[in-house]
């Protein structure tokens, strides 16, 4: 078992007019990485490179310890969940199994049936009849049925109600009770990850702004709030400063705190606040 579930080193890639530049991060096996950033930041492009669907212009990519592109059999161990299904709409859920099973050496039919049952999905239903939340569960059922060790989720919760989003967190928690299972969860809804992410990589405009354990990232920044006359110095090292008639709120590196003046309220930020303040337009 490889110690790293996935690794990208200095990856450059182009998709249309969009460019990824020098993307570097890795996820140790057995953990969850939140891959966060605003819409259009490059999350999907990065994931496509990771899965071998897009060839990078430069850099190295490793999946489950092996260089990508490589033997496609590597994907036997990878499950993918997106914000839309990638099956024939008119297939019934039983047809989905029939179509996919020949490709996976470890497909477990019993597991598929019991997962559908557990998720409340009727095998006789067609893919197009599923709600958004049910579609997500179908993709998870498929991924778990071939015993995937790495789950890659790209915006799985967009369009989902909070109940379904919470269910996903529960499903992932269960998936991670095995220490050789890893998850890459890309989203722009950071609240989903706030609690369960072990690692966070923050991407913006095709570049990685930060990649570390979630705790380290949260420790590296502070949210500061002051009155309308505070933090007016344009040279102050603030990010995402928001001014109103009653005050100002901004993000600052913990290391830069001492450089700020004024009677300020300082507190630890949430992951969401970091992404919003660092990800917004400057």
């Amino acid at each position: 078992m490889s110690k790293t579930a996935l690794a990208l080193r200095h990856v450059d890639a182009t998709r249309g007019t969009f460019h990824l530049r020098d993307v570097t991060f890795d996820l140790p096996t057995g953990y969850v990485m939140g891959f966060v950033g605003p819409n259009g930041a490059g999350k999907t492009t990065t994931i496509r490179c990771l899965l071998g669907m897009l060839r990078p212009d430069a850099g190295e990519i490793e999946l489950l310890g092996r260089r990508v592109p490589t033997d496609p059999d590597l994907l036997q161990d990878v499950g993918v969940v997106l914000d839309h299904t990638f099956f024939v709409d008119d297939w019934r859920l039983t047809d989905v199994e029939r179509a996919l099973r020949p490709f996976y050496g470890r497909w477990d039919s019993t597991r598929y049936r019991s997962l559908l049952d557990g998720f409340g999905l009727d095998p006789a239903h067609k893919v197009k009849e599923l709600s958004r939340g049910q579609s997500m569960k179908l993709m998870i059922a498929v991924a778990l049925s071939h015993d995937a060790r790495l789950l890659v989720l790209d915006e799985p919760t967009s369009g989902l109600d909070p109940v379904a989003r919470d269910e996903l967190v529960g499903i992932l928690g269960e998936f991670l009770t095995a220490d050789d299972h890893s998850v890459l969860f890309s989203t722009h809804i950071t609240t989903d990850l706030e609690r369960i992410a072990d690692y966070v990589t923050f991407i913006r405009d095709g570049q990685v702004m930060a990649s570390s354990t979630k705790d380290d990232l949260l420790d590296a920044y502070r949210l500061v709030r002051g009155g309308p006359d505070d933090l007016l110095d344009p040279a102050a090292p603030l990010a995402g400063a928001r001014r109103t008639s009653t005050g100002v709120e901004a993000l600052v590196r913990t290391a830069d705190l001492s450089r700020l003046e004024g009677n300020l309220l300082v507190e630890a930020p949430t992951l969401d606040q970091i992404v919003v303040k660092l990800g917004g337009a400057r």
């Binding site: 991670l176 095995a178 369960i196």
Partner: peptide
Amino acid sequence: PSIRALARDLQISVIT
């Protein structure tokens, strides 16, 4: 409880 089972039950990260 194992580290991972506890993380699952509390819905927090394994690192925690």
